[in-house]
């Protein structure tokens, strides 16, 4: 079947199988930041945005994004760098495999929550697993990143 969608604001017109998953569609189209970490929708590695909302691209049919806007980490590189610097500053990217999904969630949180508490941050990001860091470095990076946003404003 044929679908038309925007990935990172670029129009894609592609022929796909009806059961193709969005993650495979995106990786196939060259957006390899999107990672698969599990088969059970538990890890959050494949998080992307569909119409500005975070979803697990492993659990969305490519067919269903017809006409929609998909954003991957490649599409928000400036913000990824801005936040990524704080992550690097903590050494909290470690193996980096969870970073794309994690950062997509963080950037979405920044849009959705106003001045979140530590608890709210942990809640919002609890669907993003990380095995390397113990999450503390990520938390420090997020707090500094959000603080900088406030200072700048």
């Amino acid at each position: 079947m044929q679908i038309k969608c925007y990935i990172n604001n670029r129009l894609f017109n592609e022929v796909i199988e009806p059961d193709m998953l969005l993650i495979d569609f995106l990786r196939h189209t060259g957006f390899t930041s999107v990672k698969r970490g599990c088969d059970t929708a538990n890890c959050g590695l494949c998080t992307v945005w569909v119409n500005e909302k975070t979803v697990l691209s492993c659990s969305v049919l490519a067919a269903s994004v017809n006409g929609k806007h998909i954003t991957t980490l490649e599409g928000v590189e400036d913000e990824a760098i801005a936040f990524g610097k704080f992550v690097a500053d903590e050494g909290a990217e470690q193996c980096g495999y969870c970073s794309p999904g994690f950062i997509m969630s963080v950037l979405s949180m920044k849009r959705e929550l106003n001045d979140p508490t530590e608890e709210e941050i942990k809640h919002y990001l609890s669907g993003n697993l990380c095995r390397c860091t113990g999450y503390m470095g990520q938390l420090r990076a997020i707090k500094k990143f959000l603080q900088q946003g406030k200072d700048g404003a």
Binding site: A41, G44, T54, L56, S59, L125, G127
Partner: peptide, 12 residues
């Protein structure tokens, strides 16, 4: 529903 996996799961 708040404890079900994570936001991106609950968005699906």
């Amino acid at each position: 529903v708040k404890n079900i996996v994570g936001v991106q799961f609950r968005n699906c």
